[in-house]
Design a protein around this nucleic acid. Structure first.
Lengths: 153, 153
DNA sequence: TATTGTTATACTCTATAACTATA
DNA sequence: TATAGTTATAGAGTATAACAATA
């Protein structure tokens, strides 16, 4: 069933296309596993990512957050709404620019990030532990490459 | 702001934890780029993945599809509903087991998969094209590793 | 006018719970 | 009883469109 359609491509292009497909499948599958691996029932993947960013890099405006995560400001506004509603982050006015709002973590938010760091994705780490040094090096390099590609443009 | 909390871990464990975080960020970012890269306004990532699977591997039951994609049967039922509603797939009764339903692509579904294969993620392929052979090898190996981890358990 | 942020609305994707039909 | 599939409902995450407030 694989060759219903035939395309004219060089063999190098076919390989690239196959590599794309392999990476895409791995990314989609792994994303789904990460997504279902919640700390409490509390926050989803996007929200915990933003909370961790606020924890690590300090208070930021909505625009900074949405640019960094490559989502629309409207989308980010809803994500931070979930964080503030749950008491993990707070809004405060920017003293230098009345249009801006600074988001920062609460003590309860800090606590959640710490818990997350210790507990989440432990199943994934146990798989990493069993890999050879070569495979771990390949993964580390790939993570770098993929992040650069994802952040490009 | 990075060291608000201190954990007692060996240096090897810290490295694994950092590798986990790097891979997770790369996966989440890249997933979002893939997700927003639609063919028409038509189908989302999950639906096109299932359609491609039907195209490549032939007709399959709901349970086969949901097991393969690691989602609940109820979730897969809704995904195939989107495919059938759009005319890209059809249901047919399994002749050997009256409980089962076989899903298969329509000509219009085949056409969409072919279009998808040629056009989608072309921005990603153009990044792959610029990588060194070593980096491409690292990516290929990593895709294999990550898919195995994602499919484990 | 341009920028920052918000709400309203809609869609994809996913889950759990409750159901029907067939084995 | 067990298996296959479905629908109802809910929630996360995202987008576009329309808006208010400030620069």
């Amino acid at each position: 069933m694989v060759d219903k359609a035939t395309t004219t491509s060089t063999s190098a292009e076919v390989e690239l296309s196959e590599l794309r497909a392999e990476v895409a499948v791995a990314v989609v599958r792994l994303y789904r596993r990460f997504r279902t691996d919640r700390i409490d029932g509390d926050l989803g993947e996007a929200a915990i990512t933003v909370l961790t960013m606020l924890y690590k890099d300090g208070p930021q405006s909505l625009r900074e957050l949405s640019d960094h995560e490559r989502v629309t400001p409207a989308s980010m506004s809803q994500t931070v709404n979930r964080l503030t509603a749950a008491g993990y982050a707070v809004r405060s006015p920017d003293p230098d620019d009345g249009r801006k709002v600074l988001f920062s973590t609460t003590p309860s938010g800090d606590e959640l990030v710490a818990k997350d760091r210790n507990r989440r994705h432990s199943w994934f780490i146990s798989h990493l532990r069993r890999l050879s040094d070569e495979d771990r090096a390949a993964l580390a390099r790939s993570a770098e490459i993929l992040r650069e590609i994802a952040d490009a443009d």
